[in-house]
Structure formats: structure tokens, C-alpha cells
Amino acid sequence: MTAEPCWTAALLVNRDGQYLLHLRDAHKPINDAGMWSLPGGAREGDETLEEAVARELLEETGLVVDGLTRFTVVDDTMQVFLGRWDGDPSRLPVTEGIMFAFFDAATTARLTIAPWVAEVLARHRAERAERPPRGHGQGAVAHVVGVHLHLERDGKVLLGLRHPESPFAPSQHHFLAGHCEQESAVACLIREAREEAGLVIEAADVELVHTVHVVDAPGAPPRLQLVFRARRWAGEPRVLEPDACLGWGWWPLDALPDPMVGYARAALDGIREGRPYTELGWD
């Protein structure tokens, strides 16, 4: 059995296909000194690769990027994750190195760039170029289906604060949520409500109130995020998975907490405006 890599890095691509690169300090005894590289670093302790890359991104850029997916492994030691980010790199805090900037593929060829990073960018460009044009019946891909519980009481909505070491959306507020297994979406919702918060919900009391069709990065798996309202339920929310959620709270709809998972906030905006559907991340 091959050991997992001990290093991680994040390849962030914006809507224009540009790559976020990090200029490393030239006068320190560090890897990739004086070169453009990718944010990332080594795993610590018992961290998973997902936890390590999320921590390194937060430490080096201040970013929390949802939906990072494993892209490629370099020299059996570096796991590179792929993600989408469309912000302004000049506004990022520079805790290490010199600066961050977006570059298109043509410009990266003229930079002093770490060799392993050049290899990663070449792989990404080759993968995009190899995708065949889509015709009728072609290009179908599997979608990840997520379910989300929308509970309202006295004009407030139930949200949970994610654990700071969670691989998904650390230290952000989110719906009670989960991914469908071999089950219907409503069955998944009922199971997750019971397992995560001790709430008892009946299928007859559930209605679909919003759908978010989201893709987090070019080439990342598309996701259908289904938001269900429960008209009735039994029990008070309790923290039953403390490694994922620190606590549950009821938040006014006009004073939602920050930070909050982006598509969850978009879904609540859609529900308030009476819209059944939102798209995020699609060009």
C-alpha cells in the first residue's frame, strides 16, 4: 500500500482560467526561494491531506475555499488540490513570501516558476485541452447531491458553526447538511437531522424550497445542493458530531452570521425572494 503524500498545495483557478501564484522570498532557506509557487505546506500530526491544505491556505492567504478536490500527485510526495477562487489577490494578507497574483498560461511560461509547479500547470492545461467537445448524449458527469435542512422559528433560521478543523468550511456557519448515500434525498435529510442534531422529522412534513447548482472550480465535480424546509419537527438541536459542528444557533434572517458558506447564504436569499433555483460558479 502506497503511503499518502506528506506535502499539500492548492492550485486555485479563476473564471478566466488564470492561476493564483505565490512569489516566494528569495533570501530565506526555504523551498522554491525566489520563485513563483503554489500556496501549501506539510501535513502536521494526524491531519488528513484535506485538513492540511485547508490549514495552509488559511495561514498563507487567509482564504477558506469550499470544494477543493484532489487533482494530481507530484513525485509521490506532493498532493495538489484544485479549487476555484475569483477574488482580488492584491487584497490577500501576505504572511509568507512577497505577493500573490493571477497569471494566464502564456504568462507563466515567462516567469521564474518552481519546476514542480510548471509540471502541475502543464497537467492542468493538458487535461482541459483533452476534454472532447460535447454533443448530444456526450459529456455526462456524475453530480454530488447534498441535502440541507431549513428550519425557521420565530423569524430565525437554524445554522451550525463548523469545527475549525473540519475539512469542509472550517469556522463557517452552515445548514445542517449531508451527502446522499444509497438513499433518497428526503431519507438522507431525516437521517442527517437525527445523527447530527437529534431532531426527529417526518417525510410528510418536508418540502423542497431551493436548489443550488454549483461548481467550485474548473473540472471539479458539479454539485446539486437541495434545501428542504421541515414544517414540523421534534426535539431541540444538540451537538452530536462535535468534530464537525461546535454548536447550533437560531439566526435572524436579516442578520445572518459571518462567515457563512456561500451557497447556503445564496439559498437563503433565494428563499426570501421566492426564487426556487440558484446557479453558482458556472461560466
Rank of each mutant, 00 (worst) to 15 (best):
I98H: 11
A109L: 13
A185N: 06
P221Q: 02
V209K: 04
M1S: 15
V227W: 01
T2D: 11
P93T: 00
V214L: 03
V117W: 08
C245G: 07
R231S: 12
N31Q: 14
W233H: 07
W282V: 00
E130G: 15
A177C: 12
G41C: 02
A255Q: 14
A42P: 13
A54W: 03
A101W: 13
R153C: 01
F100I: 02
R162W: 08
V65D: 04
G34L: 07
H174Y: 15
D75Q: 15
E207L: 10
F100T: 01
A169Q: 05
V141R: 15
L199E: 12
A3H: 14
P132Y: 00
D258I: 12
H22I: 09
V117Y: 07
V74A: 09
E56M: 09
F228E: 02
A197E: 03
G160V: 03
A126H: 07
P89K: 09
L38D: 06
T108G: 01
G97H: 01
E50S: 03
R70P: 10
A203S: 06
V214F: 00
R232Q: 08
C245V: 15
V94F: 05
V157G: 03
V209L: 05
D154P: 03
V73E: 14
D269G: 12
A267S: 10
L161E: 08
G146C: 01
P5Y: 00
R238H: 12
A266W: 00
F102S: 07
S184I: 07
V209C: 10
R55F: 01
S37N: 08
A52E: 05
G198S: 03
E50Y: 00
P132D: 04
V157D: 06
W116S: 08
E236Q: 14
P218I: 09
A114L: 05
P276L: 09
G281N: 02
E119W: 15
P252V: 07
A177N: 15
E127D: 15
G198A: 02
E195D: 05
A105E: 10
L57H: 00
R110I: 06
G97R: 03
V212N: 00
G67W: 01
V144E: 08
R191K: 05
V145C: 05
E44N: 13
P132C: 04
D104K: 09
D66Y: 00
V215H: 11
T48A: 02
L58E: 12
V215T: 14
R125M: 10
Q182G: 12
P242K: 02
V117G: 02
S37C: 12
F81Y: 14
A142R: 08
A122G: 11
A109T: 12
L111Y: 02
T72D: 13
L224A: 09
L82F: 01
S90M: 11
L224M: 14
E196N: 14
R125K: 12
R223G: 00
G178M: 09
P89L: 11
R191Y: 04
L68H: 06
A193H: 07
T48N: 03
T69D: 06
D76N: 13
A217L: 02
V65N: 02
